[in-house]
């Protein structure tokens, strides 16, 4: 269920209030970016996908009936667009062998954040070694802190399936991390 305040905002957007949409974007932009980044591990792509999701939402806001929450709707669009982007990358033979991607993140990360820079690429590699659904569950549930119910709504799976995928994903991540760490060392 949506908060009454959010419903009001959506109603205002439907009536053509741009300011209301700005507020909505402000509320959800970080989450949208984080989800997209979780999938794409690339600042530019994540930014594109997050912004594109908001444009899509704006285009079809008139058909939004509020049956699901606004968050779920937005995150589903972000997830789908991110997965499409990954598919496109695969098609253009863009492999994630060049991980860690350091273009944008290096520029905008604080200079003293050395521990983050060391560990993050390893986690990203381990995450990308997971099958798509397991990766999506780990990104949404663990990295973005969404509830199991919300993840099940976004990915249109049962809660039991989400729990199973999360369990398997975490297990694989642990194994992967150990392997990659050994490799690096």
């Amino acid at each position: 269920m949506m908060a009454a305040d959010e419903q009001q905002l959506i109603l205002r957007v439907k009536e053509g209030d741009h300011e209301a949409y700005r507020v909505l974007v402000g509320r959800h932009m970080k989450h949208a970016y984080n989800i997209a980044y979780g999938f794409l591990i690339d600042h530019d792509d994540a930014e594109d996908i997050a912004q594109e999701s908001f444009v899509r939402i704006y285009e079809s806001i008139q058909s939004f009936r509020g049956e699901a929450s606004f968050n779920t709707w937005l995150y589903r669009i972000v997830t789908n667009l991110s997965l499409n982007k990954l598919r496109q990358r695969k098609n253009t033979n863009h492999r994630i062998t060049n991980l860690p991607h350091q273009s944008a993140m290096n520029i905008i990360s604080p200079p003293d954040d050395t521990s983050y820079q060391d560990v993050k690429p390893i986690i990203e590699r381990a995450l990308h070694a997971l099958p798509t659904l397991q990766r999506a569950v780990v990104i949404l549930r663990h990295l973005n802190g969404l509830s199991t119910k919300q993840v099940s709504e976004i990915l249109r799976c049962s809660e039991g399936t989400i729990k199973t995928h999360l369990h398997r994903g975490m297990k694989k991540m642990k194994t992967q991390l150990t392997e990659i760490k050994d490799e690096v060392i």
Binding site: V25, V55, L177
Partner: peptide, 27 residues
């Protein structure tokens, strides 16, 4: 090692101020 560190936290506030404007521009 596996504490969820949000990528959005690594971006400066100015970036987020521009984000909404860019969305508007795209719309």
């Amino acid at each position: 090692v596996f504490s969820p560190e949000l990528p959005s936290d690594k971006l400066p506030p100015e970036y987020w101020n521009n984000f909404a404007l860019e969305v508007e521009q795209k719309i």
